[in-house]
Each structure stands twice: as C-alpha cells, then as structure tokens.
Design a protein around this nucleic acid. Structure first.
Length: 503
DNA sequence: CGTATCCCAATTATTTGGGATACGGTGCGATAAT
C-alpha cells in the first residue's frame, strides 16, 4: 500500500509530518502503539487515515464533547462521510440509528463514559472493530484517578471488542504516565514513538511578584507591550472574569474570558471569536485549550502556576504552533502555593466525612446516581472528592457499576484512608516539583526536559529567564529604552515580543 | 493563602467595621428499554 498516495487521496496532503508514517505503519501491521507527539503536529491523521484504510470500525475515545463535534464536522466538511460521534449531545433517535448501522461507519468518536454502557458495548460487539484509539491519552492518568474514572476502565472494553490494535496518543506524558497508560490499556507488543516535549521557539520567562493585586497592574503593562494573540491562565474563575473586565477598562478592546462555569453556547462563541481573530486575548482557567488549534498565539501568561508541570506544558504548548517565536511568562507569588495546596486538599475527605459516607454505603444494594449524591452532599463532599473515593472502592470490588456489596466499615476504612492519603501525596509531590522548578537556579528548559526524562540537545537563543532573555539584542532599541525608563519590567522581556507600533 | 459574604454590635447611624465562615479547577452522563 502506498501510504503517500492514500494520504493525498483522503486528506490532500502530499507529505507526512513527523512520526505520522511510522505510527500508521505500526498500527496497520497490527501492533499496539503509544505515541507522544509535540502539540499541534497533526495527531489526528495518525488514526483517521488507518480508519479509512481498514474495512472495519475505528473507535476513537475522546475526552471532550466539543472535540468530537469539531472533528466530525471537519471531516464531513472535507467530504469524508461515514463518521459519527456518540455522546449525550446526540439525540436518542440518532444514537439508535448509528448503533443499528455500525457497518456503515469508519470512525466512531465516543466518550469513555459512553463505552461503559452495556447496551452500547453489546452493539459494538456485533461489528468488526479495526482499531481502538485513545486520544489525549494522558487523561487516563490525570483525570482517570479523580473525576473521569471511566478512563481507567477501557481495557475490559477493548478486550470485549476482540482486542483490536490500540493507539494511545498524547502530547505530554512523563515516563511514569506512559507506563501507566501502557498498563491501563494493557498494550502488548507495544511500539512506542516518543518525541521530545521541547518547543524551542517558546521562550520560558518566570517572574516573582508581590501579591495578586499588584500582579494585575503588571499584567496590564505586559499585555500592552506584547504582540498578541495571547492567553492568560488563572487559577480561579473569578480571577479570570475580573482580569478580563479590568483589562477592558484599561483599554484592551478584544478581551474576553472563558471557564467551565459558563454555559456551553458562550464557551463555543468565545472560542470561535478567538479562532477568527475577533478576540486577541482570553483570560481563562484550565478549561480552555484542549483542541484549540490556533496557529498564531504569540504568548501564554500564567497569572498563577498550575498544579503540575504537565499541565503547564500543555498550556504553554498552545503558543507558536506556526513555528514563529513566542513567549511563556509565568507570574508567581508565595501565596499561590498555599492556595494550590488547598485546592488539592479539598478533593480528599477527612475522617468524619469518610466514616459517614462509608457507613451509608456499607449496607449494600443498588443505588442510583441521585441516591449516592444524597449520601455525600450533606457532609460537604464535592462530586470530585466522591469520585476519588468511589474509584478506590471500585478497585477493591466493593461496587461494580451500581451494585454495592455490603461491607464492614471498620475493615474498609483503614484501606481506603491509606489509598486516599497516597493519592494526595502524589498530587502534593507533583505540586512540589513545579515549585522546585519555579524557585530553582538553573536552566528552566533543561529542568523541564529532565522532568520528562529527556536530555536537552541544544539551547535556543531565547531559552529561559535563567539563561537570560534580557541579554538579547533589541531590534528596536528606541522602543526598548523609552519603555525601560518607565517600567523596569520591560527589561525582562525578549525583544521579539515587543509591539512595533507602540511608542 | 486571599477574598467575598454574612451577621451582629456599636451606642443612637439606615452606617461601619470586626469576626466568623465558606470557597477556590478540569467534565462525562444521568431516567426507561431498545
């Protein structure tokens, strides 16, 4: 088979990009594949092309409804039919239709939750499944242990579908996470294609500030000097909204905000406006970004550090996909760390909460979601905290789907308590790692790469704040000098990011 | 840790300020039966 011809035929591209051909060939040979490709290098081709080349159905597990809709729409508008998504946004009639005509489809996008439906699985079992794809596979490790635990129940599903070749693909996974993915999906005879997470054209700048209120003023000055479009990540929804309206008041016209608390339509609208360059600045929480394929984002600012380096890398990876220079600027103050610690803690239950919930569950029987909610809500337990707990109980087989075993609280409590403590420790260690990185005194890029078990091959000119971004020659020294006299922080920035038209 | 909110006392005000308290991110699907 001439893969180049097929690529041209199905997608109109004449060349494969890094890694794509190897991954596709392995998959077509029937091997399991774990692939880590840098952000924005055409990951979807790696499974879409094999999907069209085989005569069976390719199942794509995708984390977000919007991602599924986007991909289905994009393929359809390119004239590629025989594609569908199965999720809660799809009407019952349509779901029914798709499940009754599976032979007519090549690619089927599903949420991991949908794959837990016995009815859906029974239908899928009746058709030939060629490939089992897990997109954004790092979700297995990160979301899977807290609020998306169905991500850790994929191996039995794949086995039930006659164990088709599996591709797990992601842009950011440490060695630990990669091992976890291989184990969770029970990848055999696995071929791993691991590319560097390094993005040499993104300069890494870090700056300490005194507090969040003074940060906001500094942010305004940065945004005024930097060439957009840009993204600003905040730890809370409130801050994202407040900063957005503050920046608007300060005269930045095309600013808006984005977070998970907004209605779906608004989120869609903001994202589209940003894509179409009607907005050039988004103040957002970590909700924004997955599947955002905007090529010309020039900077990503973190108003507070994220909870771990993987998230940080995911978020800055949205900059400079066009290959042009771009900037990551991380602002931090001591208070951010305590705040982050508190956020981790709130998903872990204390003793009295745990005893209360375990006691209520220990009688066994069948429970609906609503009934479970009535158990954990009165003790101020969040959905996520309960999900973390429930996952541990699932691991010990105290619950299978909605069927609960009766158990002895005194026996179960110590086991669960230990598991939750260990989980909390992992989160805290990851938090400590990113703070060690922030406060450390050596090359920031080198350290990030070491965190991902890589060795830095070469140092870009605009590397990081440790290597010295401000030592670079300025193309427009007039701009630089005038601004530097009034704002010391300009000194801190790489010249390539200064707006030419500002005085 | 910072902040927003609520309540109550102060001393005689429809206000002010102190103390206590809660909260902070990421998202699928839910029911019935086919």
């Amino acid at each position: 088979m001439d893969l180049h011809k097929e690529l041209k035929h199905w997608f109109g591209y004449s060349e494969f990009r890094m890694g794509q051909k190897d991954i596709i060939e392995s998959l077509l040979k029937g091997q399991d594949v774990l692939a880590m490709l840098p952000t924005g290098t055409g990951k979807s081709i790696c499974y879409q092309l094999p999907g069209f080349l085989s005569n069976g159905l390719t199942i794509v597990v995708s984390p977000l409804l919007s991602l599924m809709q986007d991909q289905v729409q994009e393929l359809k508008s390119n004239g590629l039919k025989q594609i569908a998504a199965l999720n809660s946004m799809v009407s019952n009639e349509e779901r029914q239709f798709v499940l009754n005509h599976l032979h007519d489809y090549r690619l089927l996008y599903l949420s991991p939750e949908m794959l837990q439906s016995e009815y859906v699985l029974s239908k899928l079992k009746q058709t030939k499944v060629s490939f089992f794809i897990v997109d954004e596979a790092h979700c297995i490790s990160h979301w899977g242990k807290s609020f998306r635990t169905d991500y850790r129940k994929l191996a039995p599903v794949r086995r039930a579908l006659a164990n088709p070749p599996c591709l797990a693909i992601t842009a950011t996974a440490t060695e630990v996470v990669r091992d976890d993915i291989r184990e969770q999906l029970q990848l055999n005879n696995v071929q791993s294609y691991i590319y560097s997470v390094d993005r040499p054209t993104i300069a890494l700048d870090i700056k300490e500030t005194s507090s969040n209120s003074t940060k906001l003023k500094e942010l305004n000055e940065y945004v005024r000097s930097l060439e957009g479009p840009g993204l600003i990540y905040f730890q809370t929804r409130k801050w994202a909204e407040a900063a957005s309206s503050y920046l608007q008041q300060q005269g930045h016209a095309n600013v808006s905000y984005y977070h998970g608390g907004m209605v779906h339509e608004d989120r869609l609208l903001i994202q589209q406006q940003f894509m179409k360059d009607q907005l050039d600045l988004i103040c957002c929480t970590s909700a924004f970004g997955m599947g955002v394929n905007k090529s010309n984002i020039r900077y990503v600012i973190h108003f507070q550090p994220p909870l771990d380096l993987e998230s940080f890398l995911q978020e800055i990876g949205r900059a400079g996909r066009d290959g042009e220079n771009s900037l990551s600027l991380l602002l931090y103050s001591a208070e951010d760390r305590q705040m982050a610690k508190t956020m981790i803690k709130k998903d872990l239950l204390d003793k009295s909460q745990l005893i209360h919930i375990l006691s209520a569950l220990s009688t066994g029987g069948k429970l609906t979601y609503a009934e479970e909610k009535l158990i954990y809500l009165p003790v101020n337990c969040s959905d996520t905290a309960y999900s973390v707990l429930r996952y541990q109980l699932e691991m010990e087989n105290y619950v299978i789907r909605d069927q609960w075993q009766s158990f002895d609280v005194q026996t179960v409590y110590p086991k669960i308590e230990k598991a939750l403590t260990e989980y909390g420790q992992v989160l805290e260690q990851r938090l400590n790692k990113i703070w060690e990185w922030i406060e450390s005194n050596s090359c920031k890029r080198q350290q990030i790469l070491r965190y991902f078990d890589e060795i830095m091959q070469s140092r870009p000119d605009a590397c990081c704040s440790y290597c010295g971004l401000d030592r670079l020659e300025l193309t427009n020294s007039k701009v630089h000098n005038q601004q530097a006299s009034s704002f010391e922080w300009v000194d801190h920035l790489n010249y390539v990011f200064l707006k030419g038209h500002q005085q």
